[in-house]
């Protein structure tokens, strides 16, 4: 059994779909943060069978929109004094700015300097995002 100390202050991201923790690690820019981060893969889960967990020590300032975009079923626990003081609910964000990039070579984002890559959630309830400039759908491939 792998043991990782519990946090005194920080965030625990629980119920991450098994295998997607490193993607979250990258998109949240955790490699650039000067704090202790534990990534636990393939932990046992009653709910999911297998799950990933990320523990971030010392900070509670992370981009919840990014998490909502990747998987709005992730549980976000805010820890202080070793206790869960808040559970944050995640939503699919209406817009995403500079989280994902438009891959359409015909899009203005392919040549314009300093342009924000902005995606908007489609209104048809299908949980898809389209670039605001060219309207091409984001595909995670």
């Amino acid at each position: 059994m792998l043991n990782i100390d519990s946090l005194n202050k920080g965030i625990v991201l629980d119920h991450i779909r098994a295998g997607s923790s490193m993607k979250i690690y990258d998109l949240l820019g955790l490699s650039q943060m000067d704090c202790c981060v534990a990534v636990i893969k393939n932990a046992k889960s009653n709910k999911l069978g297998k799950k990933d967990i990320i523990k971030i020590e010392g900070t509670t300032d992370i981009d919840l929109d990014v998490l909502g975009f990747i998987d709005h079923n992730i549980t976000v626990n805010i820890i202080d004094n070793g206790q869960i003081i808040e559970k944050k609910q995640l939503y699919l964000p209406k817009t995403l700015t500079n989280v994902i990039k438009c891959k359409n070579p015909r899009c203005i984002t392919s040549i314009e300097e300093e342009i924000n890559h902005v995606f908007r959630l489609t209104e048809d309830g299908t949980q898809r995002y389209r670039c605001i400039y060219c309207e091409q759908e984001y595909q995670d491939k």
Binding site: R106, E112, C131
Partner: peptide, 10 residues
């Protein structure tokens, strides 16, 4: 008029 899509929005 621009060959890149979204240039007028920009």
């Amino acid at each position: 008029r621009h060959p890149k899509e979204g240039a007028p929005l920009r």
